[in-house]
Design a protein around this nucleic acid. Sequence first.
DNA 1: CTGTTAGCGCGTTCAC
DNA 2: GTGAACGCGCTAACAG
Lengths: 346, 346
Amino acid sequence: MPRTPSRLLSDPPNVTIRDVAAQAGVSVATVSRVFNRKGPIREETYQRVIGVAESLHYVPHAAARSLSLRSTATIGVVLPELHGEFFSEVIRGIDVASRQHGYHVLLSGSHSDRDEMRAVVQAVRGRVDGLIVMSPDLEPSSLLTDLPGGVPVVMLNSRVAGRPCITIDNAHGAREITSHLIRLGHRRIAFICGPAQNADAEQRRRGYRAALKSAGLDGEKALEFAGNFTEASGYDVAKTIMGLSTRPTAIFASNDAMAIGALGALREAGLQIPEDMALVGFDDIPIARYLAPPLTTVKVPIAELGRRGFEMLIAASNGHGDDGSKPARLETQLVVRRSCGAELKK
Amino acid sequence: MPRTPSRLLSDPPNVTIRDVAAQAGVSVATVSRVFNRKGPIREETYQRVIGVAESLHYVPHAAARSLSLRSTATIGVVLPELHGEFFSEVIRGIDVASRQHGYHVLLSGSHSDRDEMRAVVQAVRGRVDGLIVMSPDLEPSSLLTDLPGGVPVVMLNSRVAGRPCITIDNAHGAREITSHLIRLGHRRIAFICGPAQNADAEQRRRGYRAALKSAGLDGEKALEFAGNFTEASGYDVAKTIMGLSTRPTAIFASNDAMAIGALGALREAGLQIPEDMALVGFDDIPIARYLAPPLTTVKVPIAELGRRGFEMLIAASNGHGDDGSKPARLETQLVVRRSCGAELKK
DNA sequence: CTGTTAGCGCGTTCAC
DNA sequence: GTGAACGCGCTAACAG
């Protein structure tokens, strides 16, 4: 019987830098130099090493490099969940920016509670060079207390003292669109809130209230309804509104998902949008414009949120040197703009 | 001037196992045992080590562990792109399954050409324990030739010799829904194809043709239109169809994105769906049911695709031992079922 | 230009 | 029960 243990193809399952060195008749250091384009190498040696490496299917071992280089070339992305196009777009923005800069993306979603999230934030030591964290519902500063030291973090859509962040100018957008409705003649404008602890939700409500106030419509404050950013909650609230004795003439859902849910409920009730009931959302998730009627919405460049987050992280990593260089801008506000889509009629 | 270089808080940026050992008055081996629950440790020692580790904010260094353990506890996910809810759902499925099993997810999307994808597939040595790859457009077998040896791979929705995979029973679903249309009385059923090289697209077309054939409707084959799975292409094709002298009475878009695009075009043309024109899609992305009218679609449990992919990967890793254990099932077909949504009328 | 050597931080045999 | 020493695969000084 043959002595070889019968591995059929791709026999050398793990060829190391040493194998290449031996086969090429050079030292490991030389191979390393070749692969990292450090120090001068004689052209002939270079070619030989490359050739051997290729024939051996050699690929540098990332974990080993990380250990020695003290850097992983990957960034971690921690999101509260992964459901729907909003997060999808954020991820996409981060992904393309990362690849452009030669970084990998370690993704982690679905974190309902703080403990889960904290665990993830810890587990990344030696795994990522930086973190992009989105934690709209949780009071976030405590999350980062036991973060492995020296890890740069940028927050997406939530502030924590001393950390750079990218935020959306929620209040501005919400005020804009509410004023728009008011200009169109609406007086009774219902507002579907987001989750109680959610910062975006709170800011949007502030914008809504501000617009109402400056139009002298404070009295209508009773028209705020509790929602939680899910389609289902939008649907439910719209149902409730349908049952009201004196209905509002417009509904402002504080995100698109809820607006979509509300749309379903209104449709079931046989209402025409926007003739019978004006409806606006917030976010401009890509599908919004394929709805019937096209959803009027506050536009936020979501993928851009991800991209900028990544770029700010890179900047933070560099500004992290021993020179007491200024921490760059700590916060960047992303513009929002009112949709030019279907105009509302009262 | 003070000698300390002014690091303010969280001074020890990188506390290692050695620091813990020293502070606790034990050896690094003991600390390691404590953290990995290996070998018997005296309760007192255990508590002391844990205490010190906590007070020092010690967290094991992932790269170092990986190097020594030869395993990373993370899996890589390689997708062709990240746009839209289909991929979003796949990722979500993988993410939750991974976390349940204690794995991390390294995500990589947006790979237009083979070289880019190949580069990613290589870059993962020492970074992941396994790979989930989706590459519907590219002939995939060559992608994996220079894969670092021993890395388990499961393909999502594309077959490559010897690799386990999860596929969607596209032909079945497409045949079902086409037959359904036929039973409803439709004779002229247009079909919007997916990308030419895309395996799913091809299988769906096969299903469509099979249904036509068994109903003796082969002659209508001219009703296939080129699309590429984007909303835009669905829109364009529908426009084209509108201009036809003898229109079909039904349109079968081979994915939901194109169906959504087509829906927009039909709406612009003032057609009632499904009275004036029946329209069906394929995938059942979550938003499909919020459209007006709800999109009739072939339902595919997309997140489930991701989840199963992960689980098959784990299984493959285990079955990868030196015992010549059977490679488990190499292919699993995911069920699809016809939507019970809005019925079509001719 | 190239080789030698010393870690990077941790898991793991072995002795004790 | 616990500690000392080696190795994982690679990069970075320093020699030559």
